[in-house]
Amino acid sequence: MNAENTRRAEQLLGSFPNRSSALIPILHLVEDEFGFIPEGEVESVAAMLDVTKAYVESVLSFYTLFHRQPTGKYLVQVCRGLSCHLRGGDDLARFLYEELGLRRNGTTEDGLFTVEEVECLALCKDAPVIQVNLEYRPNVSRADLAKFLRQAREGVTADA
């Protein structure tokens, strides 16, 4: 972890009634910094909390938002909840895989995009829904996705 995140991690260790509660927030710091949880960081997080590496592994492997492989600059999560399924969510995933030449739940070779089909994202009224780097995009169409891919490739920030 970089110096800023190390400082924040140390702060987190003291901010709960029990130090153990800091593990998941610290793993979030690692995931945010690297886009995944690198092997070496598992070791340093374990040392920080005075637990075994295996224990940290056991926790992080339980949660889908912690990745063990590098993810792309844009993590695109396509909701496959039933409500999105009923309103064309599958088609969005299919479109992304075709456009990006990906198999299911993969990362492009240029490291720009990771596409994951995920379970219900809790915005069912605005189905179909995706999240890009954990920010919602409601009522998404193929055209919206095409625009997003184009802008991302041109290096324009996604919200521009």
């Binding site: 901010s15 593990l23 979030h28 938002l65």
Partner: peptide, 27 residues
Amino acid sequence: VSLYLGAGAYICGEETALLESLEGRRG
């Protein structure tokens, strides 16, 4: 009031699994 961000697991909506998660364990 402290905020706590889970990390992707439906089961953590079950109250005791949520408490496990909040204590830094598998849910």
